[in-house]
Design a protein around this nucleic acid. Structure first.
Lengths: 247, 247
DNA sequence: CGTGTAGTTGAGTATGTTCAAAGTCTGTGG
DNA sequence: CCACAGACTTTGAACATACTCAACTACACG
């Protein structure tokens, strides 16, 4: 199986939690099943009862919910290093579908394996728990984003977040990064229509803040973007000082 | 200390997870510090690093975030039996303020105590983890609610949720329940203005679905409310069949 | 009886939606 | 290599939903 550097979720875990060498080794030793998916494929569908979780080794994913009147909401994006359905570990019935946005490589782990590791090491359990809690923190921030910011600020906010999360796994080049998503998907994430996404992007472009073209985002002015998007990265809990030593 | 029936979080835990008598006894034996709060008091403020968690024994609470332009978002309400800041167990810096809406009685537990219990019993860890995951599931649903439903549907949805959550801890009378909240707070939860809350409530009243008066909600037509709010309770994970046996 | 908070109403305005059509890009097959 | 199909983006115009502002009402509390 791949070395540590090839498993971005180990990189992410080591940044998010303080794990002993033994724990890292245990995580490294987990039996994984790798699978590749084309873009726009459901990996898990609302209502299923999965017996495993998966980490993203490569690619962009999202979760989504469909509403009764044909709408769709994307409550979160997931990038390399994330474990989008880690909550299925303790929530048998999945309440959200998970789907690839770009082509993806995923590493599947049995629930059983994870439960065994968590039971043996409270530090591992804490680290994984923490991962799900950071997801929760991001959901809260997105609620605020969708509920209380106008379209351009929402857009700027999500782009700032995407930048920092991709930076954390080494997937940015300067202030530019791959974000291979359609304007429709962006609208479903921000709670606005596709047409309005288009106009919002144009306006941010005109303001000299952001360029989004053929799946690549370029942030033209980071400080101004943070202001425009009312962005404070605390909720991402990327800082290790923000860590509870769990003996 | 109070008996099991007087601790709604034990009732909730026993409904949400399958715990052995020994585990229940351990949870029952936790040293608690009870404190009462008036309405509209901050209990935890964004940026703090609490060394304990609290469960709501009585009253209504919310978490909230302030935006740069003076807006406020309430990402969630919490009722008796909930543990609003359980995530602080593994997320040292709190990213959301927690505030009483009505007068509250809270039971504080030291992080240390909870860590010790979780370390000793993976079933307890799983149950508490599950609590935080259900919170996360509710956040996702609220994102969908705010992002993709119009005002009246949002309102109906939140009221349906409040009804079921209060029912689960025995705090409803028929189709009526106490929900002592102002229209402004409701607006901050739904992402709409206070004025629009008022008009939305009037319209639901006219439709014969809901009455909201002086802190009491009366659902006039439950099936119609579910339709109006596009409400499917699966995301609340109240059903114990939705439970992962964690050995 | 006055004060403050919450709720209510109306009018004008802003933000974002819908619908329809045209333009662009990319991959595929002939 | 070109033509074509399909998905994505862009534009305009009419419309809907929700916001802001300001005034007024109802009610609880001291």
């Amino acid at each position: 199986m791949a070395a540590r550097e090839e498993k971005p979720f180990l990189k992410r875990l080591s940044k998010i939690a303080r794990l002993s060498e033994a724990d890292m080794a245990a995580l490294e030793g987990m039996p994984l099943v790798l699978r590749t998916f084309a873009a726009d494929q459901d990996v898990v569908v609302e209502g299923e009862r999965p017996h495993n979780c998966f980490a993203i080794l490569e690619g962009l994913m999202c979760c989504y919910k469909l509403t009764g009147n044909g709408g769709r909401q994307i409550p979160a994006f997931y990038v390399a290093g994330d474990i989008p359905d880690l909550h299925s570990l303790h929530l048998k019935v999945i309440d959200t579908s998970l789907r690839t946005v770009s082509p993806c490589t995923l590493a599947f782990v049995e629930h059983e394996t994870l439960h065994a590791l968590c039971q043996k090491s409270y530090a591992i359990a804490s680290a994984l728990w923490r991962v799900t809690l950071i997801d929760g923190s991001i959901f809260r921030e997105w609620e605020t984003n969708i509920g209380r910011r106008e379209a351009a600020a929402r857009m700027a906010h999500v782009m700032c977040e995407a930048y920092l999360r991709l930076q954390a796994v080494g997937l940015v080049e300067g202030l530019s990064f791959l974000f291979p998503i359609t304007q429709q998907q962006l609208g479903d994430a921000l709670g606005i229509s596709t047409v309005h996404v288009n106009r919002t992007l144009q306006s941010l472009r005109r303001e000299g803040l952001l360029r989004f073209e053929s799946g690549r985002v370029e942030i033209l002015d980071w400080p101004a973007m943070k202001v425009r998007g009312d962005f404070d990265p605390g909720y991402l809990h990327q800082d290790l000082s923000d860590w509870v030593p769990s003996r």
